[in-house]
């Protein structure tokens, strides 16, 4: 049976491709800035937002969006002000938001299954409305990267120089983290809060083994992201395994092969 015949599978593949491309591109900045941990932190904070949204009865993705953006700017602010080490701030936020999510969900019985979906993803449940939201989010993230390509490259490679040249480095770094936050929200349906960091980090880290040009890294990482999500979904369909973990494991396997074959 051809898996493309199923409408849910078609939606999953389209959403998956959008997510793969967005996470692959944003992941380049995540990997180069060395803030892989931030991706994980924002994802867990987003989960706290999901719980609050469920509690007050709005679309959980709105909660995820607000929470992850708050955390993104919180991290950007903390790292600029330097009162607290970035990873300490993230470590605290990350576990607290997660605990808050699980704590609050105690008071909304009947939503446990949904909760599980946000933790580990459930791409096969993507609705047409979700698909529209995915297009909007992915479109927004990719447009911002295209428009601010030069600015983001500058603050990623040499923030001091960017500041000297008159660019608002704090705002640009906050904007980059916001893109991470949007990508997390976008990916929540696919791999869930626990595994989002993998989509952000693995494609970029894999391509980085072979490519020494920023522009190509950005494109190829996005392309590999699409390939890995679609490949993982396909494998999960035939093996009847959970899609999120299958995508992550496939990506990790490709990364290991790349590591063994890298140029340098």
């Amino acid at each position: 049976m051809n898996f493309l015949a199923y409408a849910f599978m078609q939606r999953a593949l389209i959403a998956g491709a959008l997510i793969g491309a967005t996470a692959g591109a944003v992941g380049v900045y995540v990997v180069l800035r060395g803030f892989s941990f931030i991706g994980a932190g924002i994802a867990h904070a987003a989960f706290g937002g999901v719980a609050i949204a469920i509690l007050v009865g709005v679309n959980p993705l709105w909660g995820a969006l607000v929470f992850s953006l708050l955390v993104a700017w919180g991290i950007a602010y903390t790292s600029r002000r330097g009162h607290l080490k970035e990873e300490v701030a993230i470590g605290i936020l990350f576990a607290t938001a997660m605990a808050l999510g699980i704590f609050l969900l105690r008071f909304v019985p009947g939503y446990r299954a949904d909760l599980f979906g946000y933790l580990f993803g459930n791409i096969l449940a993507v609705s047409s409305t979700d698909l529209v939201a995915s297009f909007a989010l992915a479109g927004a993230v990719i447009s911002v990267i295209a428009l601010l390509y030069k600015e983001f490259l500058f603050v990623t490679f040499d923030p001091v120089m960017a500041e000297v040249a008159g660019f608002p480095v704090g705002i640009l770094q906050g904007a980059l983290l916001s893109l991470v936050a949007l990508t997390v929200v976008l990916s929540l349906r696919v791999v869930g809060a626990v595994l989002v960091a993998a989509l952000l980090v693995i494609p970029a880290a894999t391509v980085y083994q072979f490519v020494r040009d920023f522009h190509r890294l950005l494109f190829l990482s996005a392309a590999l992201g699409v390939g890995e999500v679609i490949g993982g979904l396909t494998v999960s369909f035939y093996l009847n395994t959970p899609p999120g973990p299958t995508i992550v494991l496939l990506s990790a396997a490709i990364f290991v092969v790349a590591l063994g074959r890298r140029r340098r």
Binding site: K150, F154, F157, M161, A165, F167, Y208, F214
Partner: peptide
């Protein structure tokens, strides 16, 4: 960082 020398030098023009 995956960046070529020419692209680093070009950053001098960004401001």
């Amino acid at each position: 960082f995956p960046i070529r020398v020419i692209d680093v030098v070009l950053m001098g023009r960004y401001g």
